[in-house]
């Protein structure tokens, strides 16, 4: 499989000399074309920072991230707090990326409406976001990211602010959507069961400064059936990851106390 995203010796610091925070590094990883990769890790480990580097919102302090694509902006991003625009109607929000790319409005509307339909929001196209619930706003954000049909989809804990039942529904919707075009996806989450359900590979990140401490291939078949959540293998894998993370968090806390 061709490599889509290659991170080599990536380091990221914040702040100046005395106050410097070593957020990420040294990070080395490879994501292949069409792979769905989840990154899990303790809070503050730098997962979001790394995602933002891949999305070209910030640059690494050292090392490089190579994205193999001919487009200037091959990635689309879905944020944790939706970030859809309250001054635009749902359809205009979904069409936003296409407007920026210069796609004619008529075609843009068709594509935006198509993805809104896949997320069950076609009937709310003319509404303003103020009248939508949190889950609906997040779906608009996803539709917006998908409407441009990006080569890479970056998702930063997109379901964190959503209730448990809706979260399961959105996970399944995302699986179905992904199955249709199989884009490259880099998905950040705290939730281990979410990561195992969705991903081909799960990368475990250490506590700050973030490095990859495990790279686990998820053994379940594609198309992924949501019922795998209740299989024994799923529970076993989740248990292993949980143990790994717990050790990581404990040793990190111990090292902090020792200082």
């Amino acid at each position: 499989m061709a490599a889509k995203i290659v991170a080599s010796q990536v380091m990221r610091y914040f702040g100046s000399k005395d106050d410097r925070v070593h957020a990420v590094g040294e990070l080395n990883l490879e994501i292949n074309d069409g792979e769905f990769v989840c990154i899990v890790g303790p809070s503050g480990c730098g997962k979001s920072t790394f995602l933002r580097i891949v999305g070209d919102l910030i640059r690494p302090s050292d090392g490089e991230v190579r994205i193999n694509s001919s487009k200037t902006r091959p990635a689309s991003m879905v944020f944790q707090d939706y970030s859809i625009y309250p001054w635009k109607r749902v359809i205009d929000n979904a069409r936003f990326g296409l407007d920026i790319a210069g796609v004619p409005k008529k075609e843009g509307n068709e594509r935006a409406l198509k993805y809104l339909g896949k997320l069950g929001l076609a009937d709310r196209a003319r509404s303003y976001p103020a009248t939508l619930s949190g889950g609906m706003k997040q779906r608009v954000a996803i539709a917006r990211a998908l409407a441009v049909e990006p080569e890479i989809l970056l998702m930063d804990e997109p379901f964190a602010a959503v209730d448990a039942q809706l979260r399961e529904i959105l996970q399944e919707e995302l699986l179905a959507l992904w199955q249709a075009d199989q884009r490259t996806v880099l998905f950040i989450t705290h939730s281990l069961d979410e990561a195992i359900l969705l991903a081909d590979r799960v990368l475990v990140m250490s506590a700050r400064p973030g490095r990859i401490i495990a790279d686990i291939k998820v053994p379940f078949a594609r198309p992924r059936d949501p019922s795998v959540r209740s299989s024994a293998e799923f529970a076993k894998l989740e248990g292993e990851l949980r143990e790994l993370l717990r050790n990581e968090v404990n040793s990190h806390l111990a090292s902090l106390e020792a200082k």
Binding site: G55, L57, S76, M77, F79, S83, Y85, W87, V148
Partner: peptide, 25 residues
């Protein structure tokens, strides 16, 4: 910042950022 970042990811130029984000916000 998140409003601006969402637009940056789509590759907005300065005028687009102003017209779609900064002005209405």
């Amino acid at each position: 910042a998140s409003f601006r970042e969402a637009a940056t990811v789509f590759g907005v130029n300065r005028w687009q950022m102003f017209r779609h984000v900064m002005l209405p916000a």
